[in-house]
Amino acid sequence: MKISISKPILTLIFLFLSVLGAESQTIKQQLKAYREEGVKKELDIKGVNPEAVITSARYFLGVKHRLGGLDHEGLDCSGLVYISFQKHGISMPRSSSEQGRYGKQIHARNSLERGDLVFFHMSWSKKLVNHVGIYLGDDEFIHVSSSNGCIISKLSDKDWKKGFLFGTRVW
């Protein structure tokens, strides 16, 4: 059986694949520049273990998204991380982009451990690091979604798998 594809369709397929490749290359270049600007900063964890921070984060499950929020009236993804660490006297930056500069970077999803922070580039923003959550183990992480509020999601879900940049281990 011979399949015939018209020239315009082939052109569209080529353009689509080119855009995907260019986007991937741009992300790689941005990630390289991000690392060169400084990562692996130390965080004074004051002897707190990851379970305490995870428990604090779980306290916000079901809370709606609110940009810049830090309480049960609403919060955003970096706010969840910020407040969950702050409750234990740990000073964490407020933005996901700056939070990603702390700890040892973990590049393989299968190397993540409970309590690691997970960072993403989602297509809705031009910023490289624009989403963060806390890894719970078993492919799950807690985060704040703009549409669903504070929830637990799977790293292997299509969008999160595609957007995953790296994890960090601050412990």
Score class of each variant (00 low, 15 high):
K2S: 07
F141N: 05
P93I: 08
W124Y: 15
S156T: 15
N49S: 07
Q25W: 15
L31V: 02
I90S: 10
I13K: 03
L31Y: 03
L61I: 06
Q86G: 04
F166P: 06
V118L: 10
N130E: 12
S95T: 15
K2V: 10
Y59G: 00
I54T: 06
A52L: 06
L12E: 04
H65P: 01
D44T: 02
L155T: 13
R169F: 04
L67Y: 14
S147H: 10
K7Y: 04
I45A: 01
R66C: 00
I106M: 08
L75K: 02
A33Y: 03
L136N: 11
N49C: 02
K41N: 06
V39T: 14
Q25M: 11
I83L: 12
D139K: 12
N130D: 12
G115D: 09
G74L: 04
T11V: 11
I54P: 07
A33T: 06
S24W: 14
G79T: 04
G167S: 09
A108E: 15
S153F: 12
D76Y: 02
C150W: 08
P8K: 06
H121R: 13
S146A: 13
K46Q: 06
L80M: 02
N110Y: 13
C150G: 13
S4A: 03
I13W: 05
I134H: 10
N110G: 04
E73P: 00
K154L: 14
Q29F: 02
K162N: 09
S97A: 15
R101C: 12
N130M: 12
Q86D: 12
A57H: 00
F120Y: 15
V39H: 04
L20M: 13
M1S: 05
L15T: 02
I54F: 07
L17M: 09
L80E: 01
S156P: 11
F166W: 05
S6Y: 01
K87R: 15
G163Q: 11
F14P: 00
R35Q: 10
I152S: 09
